[in-house]
Amino acid sequence: MRILLLGGTEFAGRAVAEAALARGWEVTVFHRGRHAPPAGARALRGDRTAPGGLAALADGEWDVVVDTWSAAPSAVRDAAALLADRAGAYVYVSSCSVYAWPPAAGYAEDAPLADGSPDAGQTDYARDKRGGELAAVAAFGDDRSLLVRSGLILGPHENIGRLPWWLSRIARGGPVLAPGPRSLPLQYVDVRDLAEWILDAAAGGLSGPYNLASPQGHTTMGELLDTCVRVTGAAAELRWTEPEVVLGAGIEPWTQLPIWVPPGSEGHDALHGIGVSKALGAGLRCRGVAETVGDTWEWLRSIGGTAPQRPDRPSVGLDPVVEAKVLGGR
């Protein structure tokens, strides 16, 4: 298989490129040159947001294109239109954020969708991703476009900082504000499982939308943080704190305490209540939380303990002063 990655040097795109190389596929990475592509990939340079920025893609043919773009949908429109006659299929890595808010717990691919336009400039994440989906379908049609609506993505090379923040915080040791309940079910997809499923789906000619995340309740908040303590070997004490106390302190779920969203909230249904039976039926396999956390910690240590941060995403994590104040009042 000949695969073209639009991106392919950081997190999800990199995982797809590395998985394709491991299969012996011919991999081309189109990127801006800010990060080195995986060894063995052919690199093309360009900036899809600049005039003439797609010039490096003027020639060439591929079996599949994988696009992880998350800003202006017009960038997906332009790339997909350019490649429509020279690529077999277009895989757009979208997001479960494309569903109209708030989605009902267990929502499937036929749930109502947010508005979006393939011709729009950058607006907000949900509309940008939906616009990107529409752009892919407009160029490649329903039968040659695959829309991968991912949930929370974790694993090595994460450049958002969610799991790396928890690992770094727990590695510092001491009392740690652990948002409860311990039994809170979590749902995510390891970036490597996402990548393998994308390649299998592309090779198998799948098309249409698929929600991509682990089964509901794949792990819990307790298991995730206990695993962080174990793999780091830190002298950390998890102080489990009721959601009401956390919220009462003005702490923002998901951003200040990454991954965590209080039970019973619209946010928890949207982020950890995704219906994924379609993807599971199409071969999605999800590794255990111990492997995801352990490998992320090994990668984090290998780069000096500081995770890269995407400049277009806000930083995550809780101020130590706020954490100490909440813990001190218990």
Rank of each mutant, 00 (worst) to 15 (best):
W240F: 14
D59Q: 14
A249L: 15
V276F: 06
A290E: 11
L21S: 02
H272M: 03
A126E: 00
E18S: 14
F11A: 00
T68M: 13
D269G: 13
V98M: 03
A20E: 02
L113D: 00
G233P: 09
D63T: 12
L280P: 04
G60M: 07
S94C: 09
L152E: 00
L318K: 03
L177Y: 13
G273A: 15
F11C: 02
E18L: 13
G132M: 02
L224C: 13
A20Y: 07
P164I: 11
D119Y: 07
R144Y: 05
Q122A: 12
V76S: 06
C286H: 15
V64Y: 04
G131A: 09
L146N: 03
V261F: 06
E61P: 09
L318F: 03
C286P: 11
W69S: 01
Q309Y: 14
A114G: 02
V321Q: 05
E61N: 05
P118W: 02
R130N: 14
D110Q: 00
V326D: 00
R182W: 10
G173N: 10
V76D: 01
I303V: 14
L82N: 05
T241P: 05
I274F: 01
Y92P: 02
L280C: 15
R42Q: 04
A136W: 04
R313T: 11
T9R: 01
A135S: 03
V66N: 05
L238T: 12
G248Q: 05
V91R: 02
G283R: 07
P118S: 08
P308H: 05
E242W: 12
A105M: 11
L82W: 09
G88D: 06
S315I: 15
A100L: 14
G304Y: 08
G132W: 02
D63G: 10
A72D: 01
W25T: 04
A235K: 12
R169K: 10
